[in-house]
Design a protein around this nucleic acid. Sequence first.
RNA 1: GGCAGAUUACCCAAGCGGCCAACGGGGGCUGACUGUAAAUCAGCUGGCAUUGCCUUCACAGGUUCGAAUCCUGUAUCUGCCA
Length: 441
Amino acid sequence: MNNEEFLSRQTNDPSFENIWQEMQWRGLIQVSTDEAKLEEALSGDPINYYCGFDPTAASLHLGHLVQLLVLRRLQLAGHHPVALVGGATGLIGDPRQTSERSLNTRDTVEGWVDSLRSQIEHYLSFDGDNGATMVNNLDWTGGLSALDFLRDIGKHFRVGTMVRKEIVASRLDSDEGISYTEFSYQVLQGMDFMELYRRHNVTLQTGGSDQWGNLTSGTELVRKVEGEHVHAIGTPLITNADGTKFGKSEGNAIWLNPEMCSPYTFYQFWLNTADADVVERLKVFTFLSRAEIAEYEQKVVDEPFRREAQRRLAWEVTSLVHGEDQTQRAIDASAALFGRGDLESIDVTTLHAAGAELPSAEQSDLGERMTIIDLLVATGLEKSKSSARRTVGDGGAYLNNTKIEDPEHIFTATDALHNKYFVVRRGRRNLGFIDLDSASN
RNA sequence: GGCAGAUUACCCAAGCGGCCAACGGGGGCUGACUGUAAAUCAGCUGGCAUUGCCUUCACAGGUUCGAAUCCUGUAUCUGCCA
């Protein structure tokens, strides 16, 4: 199944009067410009709209996925998406709440632009009347001189307004302050909206509500320069009900790039969604209809132990990002490793395939003496021997589903499953895999 | 450019010459309990050859038997003044 085929199976829910209503229901609109006018615009003839993605890493993450899905939902409603990659803004970096960013080199950013671009293409259709358009804001800023920038663009921005933007104000208020570079970011993003309005008649920008200051910077500029009222939608920040940060697993970001986050890890992330969050996640991250989601909502209440909502969520999102084949492999691996059955009873082929999905190590990564400490560190489950020792002391170390309490005990191939595999576990659900065979051949 | 203050582990934040691998909180990890959920309670949270040793309190030097703590210089940040 190619990508266009996969995309063609996605639909908006026809039970909604229009896409605005559906997005409201899915909780995708935290703030926006004039609601009534926006709803009208989105219910009428196709409009052109955009969302920007800055290359600040080699891959997009789950926060970006929300935006990509918003783009896709609007495209399904007949509108024309423009996906912007921030080749220019990525060189500057938008101000973060916490601290000043360190600048990345031009080469690095250029490389990230390419990888982001290919990731974005996966989520939008490029066929038909409203096929997506890709742009890079370096195209209109790269050749712009500082003087032209200050005269033509800067003149439209009031420092008083810029300083009052929430993110700028809070940074000014912090110990660290803010550099002129990051302070200027909002001007660049405002300029993007104006350029896209001129070049592609773009009249709506979507983005995270944390970007609201930058979004309105664009609508204001277009109004001042072009005399046109254009729109902006800010999506809510996705948060976990228990107050932890969404989109992190073991402190690592969940990336969309399979090299940086395996489909297995990705699947597990979604499967571990809390009951309190799962319905909201289904609304935001899947194309399931209102009726279907209502059914899952009931199941969470009636039979939470079945975790059907979580399973469906994990299936849908993993398939969307990694494809159905990869998802099925992640499920098979999960079933083998978390299943009730004895690990001994799993056949070699299944075990081998499951192991491939886990962080793994080979004989060559290990010394002669294999203790549980060595195995935990070799698989990356623990980052130091001290830490591994603590875990053993806590009673959280397992080898082939057996708790290991002696940190000095030496294991050999005869302890391994089928004489060659070790399944190492830290805690309830962090697994690693060791294949003793792969070193010998 | 001048003056003053700040810089402690993932984050916030104590410490003001030995009792400091460094209080406390947050976060994180593990255990009990469970549904690969949440809540609650408990333990842990620099490294290693783990009853001991090593490296950490912005960076580089210095004083001292001994420094996160005192001195000098450098960097960065903040405030006030120019």
